[in-house]
Amino acid sequence: MIQDHLFFTGINILLAWSVYIILLSGSLSFANGAFMAIGAYSAGVLSVKFAWPMALALAAAALATGVLGALIATPALRTRGVYLILLTTGVTFCVQVLLENFDYIGGVGGLGGMSGATVWHVYGAVVLVGVLLWWLSRSHLQRMLDAVREDEQVAAALGINTVYLKVVCFALGAALAALAGGLYSHYMSFIRPENFGVLVSVYVVLYVVFGGVNNLWGALLGAVVLTLLPELIRGLASWRPLVFGLLIVILLLVCPEGLLPWRSATLKSRVNDD
């Protein structure tokens, strides 16, 4: 039971970071639940029907979903703001209906037989991705992404290839969501299309918004708090959506940038460490 909670917290951290990576370049994606589904199913098919080892299946699923993400992003990122929210929501619905109507992977009935993922795997992935994001947060690339997020037009006019950066972020976010999905399917051992509805995408975005969009700790904190809080406080579990909704509404009113709103400078004029 406790193991389950730990596991889902880890998965949600990975998913929150997958949204955070896309948000780094200023795009908000409501399609990460769909990328998670694609990762869960493709990794599942590879290990169940083709007997691939789990690690290889996960890597292949993440890679394939990343490529798919780039293919979707290239036209989709011409839209912005609420238009992009609508478009990515549409992607989520389309993916779900496709999964339900694809008999090879079990259709509405679902796909079973995956195994092998443990809590350790998930937290291994969390640490790995966390270190990469921390490394990124101190790099020149982070600075360029901040510029793109703040004013895309100015960044482009000053020589930054904004389209490239946005597509790369979208692809990486999609790949990470797929990795989380693959781990999820190999832990649950049975998945159905309804596990990956639009609400999954919505919740994940809200984790990030709750924790704060300006640093990698915000997404982490948001995922941990909103996953564990209803479980920890007795009697709250059945009020989960209500607590969740109220927390978000109040937080946005009080502190619209999330719980951890700061952004730390990527470069100081004086040399401290280095």
């Binding site: 901040d146 510029a147 400078a265």
Partner: peptide, 8 residues
């Protein structure tokens, strides 16, 4: 880029 430092 108002949220970034002058140097950045």
């Amino acid at each position: 880029f108002r949220r970034m430092s002058v140097l950045e």
